[in-house]
Simulated scan of single mutants.
Amino acid sequence: MIPREVFRKIRRIQIRTSHKVDELLAGNWHSAFKGRGIEFEEVRPYQVGDDVRTIDWNVTARSDQPYVKLFREERELAVSLLVDLSASQDLGTTTQTKRELVAELGAILAMSAIKNNDKVGLTLFTDDVEKNIPARKGSRHVLRLIRELLCCEPVGVGTNLRRVLEHLNRTAKRRTVVFLISDFQDSDYESALKAARRRHDIIPVIIADPREAEMPNVGLVRLHDAETGQVVTLDTGSRKNRQLYAKLYAEQVVTRDSLFRRLRLDPIHLQTGCDLVDPLRKYFHQRENRQ
């Protein structure tokens, strides 16, 4: 039985995101994501004009006459949401935290998949895989995913992208559209991401807060790293300190973005306090045009 307050949270996010699904994604979901491609359906006798590359040589050898393979396009998608619930997702210096933004995004993507008769699954992770929900269809399944996005209390606090990608590579048996949703405050995940990229359609979704890129001038502050527990006192009134803070963040961004370029991955950039509509519309439109 879902507690009443949790149910109210689920209903609020369901109502808030449903019109965005109808407006943005449902109409061009399958034009942006083409599915697995084609799968074998049957064989039939060879006819003049058939492509000789489709000849089934095993059947031909057994029957003493040429047969060709017939294929059909598989439209149904498998969609997987890999969602970072590390402690850094609790940051929010605008109207919402990064985790609240992630929950809204996850609801939109899950509802879009279900409305297009696709399966959708969810993997929540920190420095380990916290919960894995296999891909299924149906509105009740989506409500369960939204509940987990809103209410899951992770055990870990850090971020380990390599571990969740290795879990994906072990468990996903078919080609999957993977939304990797994180602030990407991690390193040493390139090999796992490269392996996942070979098998799946990987879409990095970068979640950020404005204060991560720029430190305001507010005097002496105590900063607590939610993932490592380290506490430092920083004089934000120092221009040198603010510039160093911005430089370290910029270096992290350059490293991350250069990795995505090498692997030919096109990320979606989302920021707390900003509407999801424009970046999602732009991204799906660009994918549709590239198909």
Score class of each variant (00 low, 15 high):
8 R>E: 00
11 R>Q: 03
11 R>M: 07
13 I>R: 00
17 T>W: 14
18 S>R: 15
20 K>Q: 10
25 L>E: 00
25 L>S: 04
29 W>A: 04
39 E>C: 14
40 F>P: 00
41 E>W: 15
46 Y>A: 05
48 V>D: 01
53 R>Y: 01
53 R>N: 04
53 R>K: 03
55 I>W: 04
60 T>P: 00
62 R>L: 15
65 Q>A: 11
68 V>F: 02
70 L>S: 05
73 E>L: 07
74 E>N: 06
79 V>L: 11
81 L>E: 02
82 L>Q: 02
83 V>I: 11
86 S>I: 06
87 A>L: 07
96 Q>E: 08
98 K>H: 10
103 A>R: 03
104 E>Y: 05
109 L>K: 05
114 I>K: 02
114 I>F: 04
121 G>R: 04
125 F>D: 01
126 T>F: 07
128 D>I: 08
129 V>R: 04
129 V>W: 03
131 K>F: 12
138 G>N: 08
141 H>K: 07
148 E>W: 13
148 E>S: 08
148 E>Y: 14
151 C>W: 02
151 C>M: 06
155 V>A: 03
158 G>P: 00
159 T>P: 02
161 L>N: 04
161 L>A: 05
166 E>G: 12
174 R>A: 13
179 F>I: 01
179 F>G: 01
181 I>L: 12
184 F>H: 05
188 D>G: 09
189 Y>S: 03
191 S>P: 01
192 A>H: 03
193 L>W: 03
194 K>F: 07
196 A>M: 02
197 R>G: 01
200 H>D: 00
204 P>A: 04
205 V>T: 01
205 V>D: 00
205 V>M: 02
211 R>F: 13
215 M>C: 11
218 V>W: 01
225 D>Q: 07
228 T>D: 09
229 G>A: 09
230 Q>A: 14
230 Q>S: 14
230 Q>G: 12
231 V>M: 11
235 D>C: 08
235 D>N: 10
237 G>Y: 03
238 S>L: 05
242 R>N: 05
244 L>E: 05
245 Y>H: 09
251 E>K: 11
252 Q>C: 08
257 D>V: 14
257 D>T: 13
258 S>M: 15
259 L>F: 05
260 F>A: 08
260 F>P: 03
260 F>V: 12
262 R>S: 09
265 L>F: 03
265 L>K: 00
266 D>Q: 13
267 P>Q: 06
268 I>C: 05
268 I>D: 00
269 H>F: 12
272 T>P: 11
277 V>L: 02
280 L>I: 08
283 Y>K: 05
283 Y>T: 02
284 F>G: 07
285 H>C: 09
286 Q>A: 14
289 N>G: 09
291 Q>E: 07
